[in-house]
Design a protein around this nucleic acid. Structure first.
Lengths: 69, 69
DNA sequence: TCTTTATGTAAAGTATAATTTATTTTTAGT
DNA sequence: ACTAAAAATAAATTATACTTTACATAAAGA
């Protein structure tokens, strides 16, 4: 799964720590998601969408590999 | 978090088992998510949206309680 | 009634999301 | 070059999504 968290943060001028605080997780969790190491829960994705005032689809998108396995 | 999986399944005439097979999880996992016992991963939510040909937001929505805690 | 299909739950186990603490590396500003 | 903020990463721990197996119930049809 790809994500555009870094771009959305830039648009709103938010640091990873800022975003973490707004959605209620740790700074490292945001970093791990942004780097593609963790797949966030749907609740967390919806919260990010709300903070960025956009849709989940604008932030996260499936890749072919996500349908394999 | 609320969800309208049952309604979306009805629209597409899919059983829990049908949906499970399409998104690659077990039937019990679908049941647990539909009943609100499990919060799905963002990958799973995106797959459901694709199967239902709609958005994650149409299927899942945050409640006040999700922002507490 | 008997059978089949769909659903709801539960317990035990595995995989992984998320936390905490900590260190290192980048980046930006002066 | 120096400093400070931001970002990247890691190890250990905790919480929880998801699987598997299993059983129970309700509805519909033969």
């Amino acid at each position: 799964m790809k994500n555009s968290i870094k771009v959305e943060r830039a648009k709103k001028d938010l640091t990873q720590a800022d975003l973490a605080e707004k959605v209620g997780v740790s700074r490292q969790t945001i970093n791990s998601i942004e780097k593609g190491r963790f797949v966030p829960s749907t609740i967390l994705a919806l919260k990010m969408a709300e903070v960025f005032k956009t849709s989940v689809h604008e932030i996260f998108s499936l890749e072919e590999v996500d349908w394999q396995g």
